[in-house]
Design a binder for these strands. Structure first.
Lengths: 199, 199, 199, 199
DNA sequence: ATGTAATCGAGACGGTACGTCCAGTCTTGGC
DNA sequence: GCCAAGACTGGACGTACCGTCTCGATTACAT
């Protein structure tokens, strides 16, 4: 026999919605399963039936809700620096809304709490953006706009990591200028060799 | 009034020790005031008397226990790139021990939980290292080893943020090679224009 | 309309059997519909379709399972006291097996829980035995072995109630001697007047 | 060290009061620890700290609340039958109030649920009344008002058990007439010997 | 033979209560 | 006045069952 009432899609969505809303309202630490169930109009057991922990619900809510910044590939105008500058400015701008900041802080708490959640979130939330950057950078490298041995992965990680670090430290959030500076840095460096040559 | 029994330094230290040990054993999420009090052989009230919240105890424990990586200024051999390469390698190495990783994850959770704690931790734990970097970079800039308009603060943030990002994402932890690559990047960039022009 | 699948007798019996077994194993308080359904290999709804409550299932299980002591009429040898003495000894003996004791305790809990169940159980379980006693006593009264105004119903109630009280109090269970004493008491009383007068 | 806040007598009494009230309102089966705690204005843990189970709270509530019929010794006018008749009438009358009936049903459910509770309740609630009866009966026996070999304990048990049985069966509750009949029965019996002698 | 209708096992649903854990507060006696 | 101890109210935890509600799969009777 394979009988049994099928899982309610309505409840599933209500739970993820409630989790997302409460996450933004209260933060990860003060989010409770009780509150999610109540807000979703759902029995607590229905949450425990399908998710193993608070962090698992949060991860799912992050992936299915519209919390993640949309995956926008960097443009390809032929000028890699301009393309990335524009992309990182936009990406940074999206991170620094109050909503996104709260969301990132919450997800980072979930990540610290549970290794498996960390993997899911990285795989589905952070890595795709890094991959887009890598792809664009690889194109540029092949096109000769980057040094042939340019460390494409490292560059992508530096661009994203630097901005996220500014958000997570909860000090001055990163601005468009910061994005420009970092892009300039990874393309041109800060050494004085070039100028010396110029003399 | 000045009378009364003075605060017990023994208890204070026992609390911070217990907090630090439990933080590393269980992580921030599963750390309880009860457990700290019991392990420290202390009444719960003694904790509440002196700290406002779990995150406050954790912040203090982080600062007073030997959890923070020691503040080691970058050497000044005259060669800024070599100096920073060595410094960032060592700093990265210290971050990637099991103990430090657990500690950083726990502190990040505390940071996500409470803005005030975030400020304290940043001020007392992360910023001093950034400041050391900034100071060394400024010396190099003045000495003409960096471009006159090199964004010293941004460079320091990129170096530290890139490495911390790798730890917080709980994917591949940063290695000495990663440190080298990032240092290379911020000094030389990855663009091909300079070389072409140089020919 | 007469269509539709007929009620499954197999399931009905499996439910009553499971209820009876679990009742004896766990007692009324710790008996659950879930456990009955699982043990009977039956959907929970099949129980709710045919019984209104836990106590209703228990009552049915009591009546259809072989839990009730068999209805054995007192013999009629012409000597009412000997007949009742034997009957009450046997009845008491049956009550004091571990199985019967558990059963009576469980039914009493069901009785305390639900007035309707109390009525059913009294009507179908206790009263028939009382009725047998009343009938035998009435025969004896008419035959002149009892006082013409002997309170036949009261006597039956006293015989049964005294023994059940001993079971329900869960202290020393009633013995054959107790049965004898009670029978002696209701026939001869304990006053000294009669003997004195008789001299 | 012997420190620690002492147990709150206020809370203890509030719990027992609430348990008693709810017991009478809802019956044992539908009584919950949650409801007791809420009504008593007490944390649930405070109940679990001091009592092991619902039945234990109920037993305590029974003993400390004014639920138990007061212990009134039978008078000693020299006429044992009259004395007991009056006593049993009064005792029966007290049992048959709505409050007492609910209380007895609830206690019986608790008794069926837990052997230890059964012992406590019998020892502290039922036995004292039986003991009063036994004492009075023993006086009468020594005074020659009962047969020298009258089974004093059995008589006490019969008087009490017969009346309680009527309450527990939830059919016709016992009346003053019933009390009279039972007292008459245990003193004079129902046999026809006496009358035969009279012929 | 083919609906039509009520049953069946299974199992998810919204809930209630459980008994435990911990938070943060309060109240002792002892130092 | 601080301290260890430990009881207090409150509230979330994760589990067990409640009684209800679908499912797909029987299983009868009436066409």
């Amino acid at each position: 026999m394979t009988g049994g009432r099928p899982r309610s899609e309505t409840s599933r969505l209500a739970i993820l919605d409630a989790a997302r809303d409460l996450l933004l309202e209260r933060g990860y630490e003060r989010l409770t399963i009780d509150a999610i169930a109540t807000r979703a109009g759902v029995g607590r057991q229905t949450i425990y039936r399908w998710w193993a922990s608070k962090s698992a619900v949060v991860a799912d809510a992050a992936l299915e809700g519209d919390l993640a910044p949309p995956l926008v590939p960097p443009p390809d105008t032929g000028d890699i620096e301009t393309d990335l500058r524009g992309w990182l400015r936009a990406w940074t701008h999206r991170l620094t809304t109050a909503e996104s900041t709260g969301f990132i802080l919450a997800l980072t708490a979930a990540t610290a709490d549970d290794r498996a959640i960390a993997d899911i979130l990285y795989d589905r939330f952070t890595r795709p953006h890094e991959q887009l950057l890598r792809d664009r950078l690889e194109l540029a490298r092949v096109a000769g706009q980057l040094a042939p041995d340019a460390p494409v992965s490292t560059i992508a990680g530096v661009l994203i990591g630097s901005m996220l670090y500014r958000v997570l430290s909860r000090q001055a959030p990163p601005t468009a200028d910061d994005a420009d500076l970092v892009v300039g840095l990874v393309f041109h460096g800060s050494g004085n060799r070039g100028r010396r040559t110029g003399i």
